[in-house]
Simulated scan of single mutants.
Amino acid sequence: MSNISKLEFFALNISGKGYSSWILDAEIHLDTMGLVETIKDNNQASSKERAKAMIFLRHHLDEGLKMQYLTVKDPLVLENVTEHDKLEKTYSTFSASSMLLQQQYRGMDFKKYSKLLSHLLIAERHNDLLIKNHESRPVGSMSLPEVNQANYYQRERGHGSYRGRGTDHGRDRGRKMNYNHDGRLAPKND
């Protein structure tokens, strides 16, 4: 059996994603139907107008949301979402394994949804960075190799200081150089 009626705009997802766009679409459509007053504060809409608006709005809700708002008869309730409602909805999306994390965020006592959201986004970026670091160098992997092991070996043995390439000022130029078994630089005998 096909859909009985076509949606005029997308149904609101249970996660609440796209709520701002959904609310604007709902208001525009209710206005064209002559029912926009039903979603305004202190409105004088009749119960019949509220029922029509509610049927229209419920038609544009995800099945999970329809169940959540099963007993709601006033369309104004679907339009007024407080900061507290948004915060609670976000806390409720934490998985059961993250209950401690949910309690920690509740303990931070956010008053604005935007503050909680920015905090969660920063935490997500930090977690992504930690995962990338771990994947590039897992625990127990070999340490990084020495960049210049010959130079390191000479310094450890106390054989002078490193002056860098090309600082011999002409000394030993043209001679073939060789390292002794103890790591010291020795001229090669021809």
Rank of each mutant, 00 (worst) to 15 (best):
H84S: 15
D168Y: 04
L130Q: 11
K6Q: 13
A51M: 11
E37K: 14
F110Q: 03
R175H: 09
A123E: 14
N42A: 07
L120D: 10
K132T: 08
S46C: 05
E37Q: 12
H29G: 03
R171I: 11
L76K: 02
R173Y: 07
G174S: 11
N189L: 12
A96T: 15
T71M: 03
A96I: 15
K48N: 05
A51Y: 08
R163T: 11
S141Y: 04
D41Q: 02
V81N: 06
W22C: 04
N133P: 00
V72A: 08
S47M: 06
K176H: 00
T32C: 05
G64M: 07
K89L: 12
L76Y: 01
S114G: 00
Q68G: 02
G174H: 03
T82P: 10
M1Y: 01
A186I: 11
P75W: 01
K48T: 09
L35I: 04
Y69L: 13
K89R: 15
L70C: 06
N148A: 13
Y153T: 06
G170S: 08
R175F: 07
D128Q: 14
Q104N: 10
V81E: 05
P145D: 00
N148Y: 11
I131D: 03
H181P: 02
Q102S: 09
L185D: 04
S92A: 14
L129V: 01
S143Q: 05
Y69C: 09
Y162K: 01
P145Y: 00
Q103A: 14
I131T: 09
F94R: 11
I23E: 15
K6M: 14
D109L: 10
S20I: 07
G160Y: 03
T93N: 02
Q68R: 10
I23H: 10
D31H: 11
H119S: 14
D168G: 11
E124Y: 07
D62H: 13
L30F: 02
D172V: 07
K176N: 02
A186F: 01
R137Y: 02
T38H: 03
S46I: 03
K112S: 06
H159W: 15
S5W: 04
L185E: 00
E49S: 09
T38M: 00
Y162E: 10
G158T: 07
K40H: 11
L7H: 09
L12A: 02
E83V: 06
K48H: 08
Y152P: 01
F56L: 04
K86Q: 12
M1I: 09
K112T: 08
A186M: 09
I39P: 00
I131S: 04
R50Q: 15
E156Y: 07
E49L: 01
D31T: 06
V77R: 02
I28C: 08
A11T: 07
R155E: 13
A186N: 08
D172N: 15
T38S: 05
E8D: 15
M108V: 07
N151Y: 01
R50C: 15
E146R: 06
S161T: 10
P75Y: 01
D182W: 04
E156I: 12
G34V: 10
H84G: 02
F110R: 00
G164R: 01
I4H: 09
